[in-house]
Design a protein around this nucleic acid. Structure first.
Lengths: 150, 150
DNA sequence: CTCTAAGTGGGGAAAAGTGGCAAGAAATGG
DNA sequence: CCATTTCTTGCCACTTTTCCCCACTTAGAG
């Protein structure tokens, strides 16, 4: 399970160095093979390759003529790019993905269980503040969430 | 599985150079024989020949008297054009297909599992942004998608 | 305070992408 | 039927990007 927030700087070539505490596990799980794709909230998702392949299988089995299915396939598989950790534990983010998430220099990497999320730092803190406000306002939660005990 | 976005420029003769990371696999699967056809969303579909033949078989078996079936056959089989990778890993797109998808110079190649999609870059990013908004709005997804966990 | 390890930046070699040129084939007109 | 022109296709060279390696800086631990 990946957890926690880490501030990372993109270098001039668009590379990010993953925090060292994850590196050993990533070498073990996927030999440094990662897949980066997009998320609806204009951030990037980073999966270990085997984890991603599992999701991809579910996606490709969806019916091709269904509009929502096509949309999801195009967004997720369409943007999924395989990246390899280099000798210094860094990955190079392809320009299209960098542009999509508006990443310039200051970014944050968020551990999210089986994957990471990568945000522009300013966007992240702004969105987080919005969520806090929204969450405080709305007490009505959908089904399963009602019974959730933290 | 093909995945990921790549920006490619059409040259003055209407050729596109496929990204090198796919070339070896394409040589293996289909010896450089590709089939290009159209999609309902005004982009082009690029299949390795064996993969296309498989799809074509399914299409010709559809009931000929069904209007939507005829329509699909005319669109897909009717526009399917065989293209061969040249020595530099490029394919020449026939002018009718280029026109159909409105390809001028800046294009994007999208990996979609067993095939590629080829879009005009401007059209692609516009459509993608629309999908992101729609996807955020519509939570009603067909069966399997509901339970999809990314 | 020092030593170590991680994060960051940069330089250089190699490879990929892109545009142009030229030779060959096809088509058209004389 | 031959000659000229146009279009096509393969090849080559230049430019840009990518990848690998090394060095410097900063933070943290001993």
């Amino acid at each position: 399970m990946f957890r926690g927030v880490t501030h990372i700087n993109l270098d001039a070539k668009g590379r990010i160095a993953l925090p060292s505490r994850y590196r050993e596990r990533l070498s073990g799980i996927c030999d440094g093979h990662l897949v980066v794709t997009v998320d609806r909230d204009h951030c990037l998702l980073v999966y270990p390759l085997p984890e991603w392949e599992h999701i991809e299988q579910k996606l490709v089995r969806l019916p091709s003529l269904n509009r929502s299915a096509r949309r999801l396939q195009r967004l997720l598989i369409g943007h999924a790019t395989e990246c390899q950790l280099d000798g210094s534990g860094r990955i190079l983010l392809p320009p299209p993905l960098r542009d999509f998430a508006g990443l310039v220099k200051h970014t944050v990497l968020i551990g999210q269980g089986n994957k990471f999320e990568l945000w522009d730092e300013a966007v992240w803190s702004q969105r987080r503040d919005e969520w806090l406000v929204e969450a405080a306002d709305s007490d009505e939660l959908p089904g399963d969430l009602e019974s959730l005990s933290l």
